[in-house]
Write a protein that binds this DNA or RNA. Structure first.
Lengths: 147, 147
DNA sequence: ATGCAATAGTTGTTTTAACAAGTATTATAT
DNA sequence: ATATAATACTTGTTAAAACAACTATTGCAT
């Protein structure tokens, strides 16, 4: 029951993630790209594929349905995404990149590259393995306990 | 310029932190505690001290002034915090826990303990050192580059 | 001593996220 | 075959965060 003896991993993650997102947002802005990190996540998920169901977009990006719905709505409004009803199941919507969306994705890719490269300076493959292992363990500890 | 060769550490942090916050929120809710993780951060920062300036609360929790202002407003409304003007400098406000605030903090502490303990299951001191070192390095990489 | 800059905090707007509740469509059970 | 359940998505509400713009107070320069 002594809180001081527990590992305060949440705070560390919170602070670092905040910095990462602020940094990326600033880099986008400085390069005339009007995208948030979250919007970029959706674009990058679509960049590899032809068209994706909103459902799968949500699952792949670990966002919930309402959040994905609103991000898509916003990106459609800006001309980056196309949303069309599925023929076979009219509950579903297929989402894909427009030419504009592809263009902005390609423009943003080198910025992501720079941000990641700089953020990872002084760290190696072993560190990445450790980080993903530890974060994966925390995640599975939480999700396994919930079911 | 090849994005695939960079380390995608941001996504991992994002997903894990989301799970941690969802888990904590659910635990609070299940125990009849109406607090968000962010509100808890403010309470816990105050728990050790007599009274703190909003300015320092913001710095210590890595939140910006408007965010802290609104969280405090909310917690004052619920009777957990006291906000009073500083005598010497009337721009400043001193924030402190009320008895109710102290009570809810003490009620939430064991929940934090449980959440942290479970989240860290199967991980050790060396892992914690690695995690904090890696996250600290990423943070300093970003902040040093900005100045 | 006055003007100007700096500091502390608030307010407005937008985005993301969580949650609850809603609609529309499809699947399933009896 | 029809009622019910499940699925896909939307809408409303609240909170947190980022940013810009604002008020009020204090510090500083000349």
């Amino acid at each position: 029951m002594n809180l001081n003896k527990t590992k305060r991993f949440g705070v560390h993650l919170d602070v670092t993630l905040k910095l990462i997102k602020q940094d990326l947002l600033r880099r986008f802005r400085d390069n005339g790209i009007d995208l948030t990190p979250e919007q970029w996540t959706i674009l990058s998920e679509l960049a590899g594929h032809d068209a994706i169901y909103q459902r799968d977009l949500a699952a792949n990006t670990f966002k919930d349905a309402p959040t994905v719905s609103r991000i898509i709505e916003l990106l459609v409004k800006r001309g980056y995404l196309l949303r069309e009803a599925d023929e076979e199941d009219r509950r579903r919507f297929l989402v894909s990149l427009t030419d504009e969306g592809q263009k902005i994705y390609e423009k943003s890719a080198p910025i992501l590259y720079d941000a990641r490269t700089l953020g990872w300076t002084g760290l190696g493959d072993k560190d990445y393995d450790d980080l993903t292992r530890i974060l994966g363990k925390i995640s599975s500890n939480i999700t396994k306990n919930q079911s």
